[in-house]
Amino acid sequence: MVVSEPESISLPDGRTLAFATYGDPDGAPLVFHHGTPGSSHLGALLSAPARTRGVRVIAPSRPGYGRSDPDPDGSFETWAEDCRALVDALGLESVAVAGFSGGGPYALAAAAHHADRVSDVGVVGAPVPAHDGGPFAPLVRFPRLLGVAFRFGAVVARLRGDRFVVDQLTDRTVDDETARIVGRDFRAGLSAGPSGAVRESRALATDRSPPLPDGDVTVWHGVDDENAPIGPVRTAYEDHPVVTLCEINDDHLGTLCSVRDDVIGLAE
């Protein structure tokens, strides 16, 4: 695995945005959005195919995750501005964007608001507005309780290890390196507290979603995905000619592992 030292930029409002780089440091750029909760560490899952195919994966930790400062008023739109600031700071003219799970809508927002800077976009296992909100849906109206739930989940993950985290995302058997990456991603995402996860969980549980980009969008979704069931995804995209829905015979994390090469291909 080729990974940069953790890096960060200062955003226009003074917040810090942390990110990591994987794959080919001189390759075609792909901005990869982690899930909810999560961190820049999840980008390591794309490291091997990115290195092989000459792609530079830039994986930011969104506000409130890992080393990125929280943004209490953050939204899909404000993230689009943060993402553009990152692209500008790195001196990139154009990037592809991708998002996994709860990061999918944030990738779509970046592409929709800054079409002039985004060459291609894809999402994997991403929820849509009709989604039931996931395991913490009953708590989204109670931010403090939701925060307690995430803190408890972080403690359990530390005690029970990487495989416990993986088991929440897939029924498949994954290799030790994948389990290590996924476990580290979850722990890092909640290391500074649950503010990012609480804010995003509440946003993802509403009926509001970011607009779709004008250009083509590729959606990879597992037919066995229990974290974000495919039924609402089919309904949400059936009348959108710009969307190509690729149904994968896998579950939530399993789908991401299955389509890593395709995600990397967005940048080529």
Rank of each mutant, 00 (worst) to 15 (best):
Tyr106Ser: 06
Ala107Met: 02
Asp162Asn: 14
Val121Gln: 07
Gly147Pro: 11
Leu159Asp: 00
Pro194Ser: 14
Val124Tyr: 02
Pro72Trp: 10
Gly193Val: 01
Ile248Thr: 11
Phe32Leu: 12
Leu159Ser: 05
Thr206Glu: 11
Leu139Gly: 03
Asn249His: 13
Arg141Lys: 14
Val174Phe: 12
Cys246Pro: 00
Thr78Asn: 02
Ser4Lys: 12
Ala18Gln: 11
Asp176His: 04
Ala20Gly: 08
Ser119Met: 02
Gly161Ile: 07
Thr52Gln: 14
Pro213Phe: 01
Val128Arg: 10
Thr21Phe: 00
Gly189Gln: 10
Arg260Gln: 15
Asp251Gln: 08
Ser191His: 01
Val182Ser: 05
Arg202Phe: 00
Arg62Ile: 06
Ala109Gly: 04
Ser61Tyr: 05
Met1Lys: 04
Thr173Gly: 10
His240Gly: 02
Ala89Ser: 09
Val140Thr: 15
Ala107Arg: 03
Ser94Glu: 15
Pro135Gln: 13
Gly104Ser: 04
Trp220Pro: 05
Ala228Tyr: 10
Ala130Glu: 15
Ala111Asp: 12
Glu247Gln: 12
His252Thr: 13
Gly231Tyr: 06
Ala28Phe: 00
Pro29Asp: 09
Arg117Gln: 03
Gly14Asn: 03
Glu81Lys: 05
Ser61His: 06
Leu169Ile: 04
Ser201Leu: 03
Pro129Ser: 09
Arg56Thr: 12
Pro241Asn: 06
Arg184Phe: 00
Tyr237Phe: 15
Ser119Ile: 03
Arg158Cys: 00
Leu46His: 12
Asp175Ser: 06
Val242Glu: 12
Pro6Cys: 02
Val87Lys: 02
Thr78Met: 02
Pro63Gly: 00
Ile248Lys: 08
Val156Arg: 14
Val57Leu: 00
Gly122Lys: 02
Asn227Thr: 12
Val55Arg: 10
Val124Pro: 07
Pro129Tyr: 11
Pro210Val: 13
Gly35Ile: 05
Ile264His: 10
Glu93Asp: 15
Ala98Val: 08
Leu90Thr: 00
Gly43Thr: 10
Asn227Met: 14
Thr170Cys: 11
Val223Trp: 02
Pro211Gly: 14
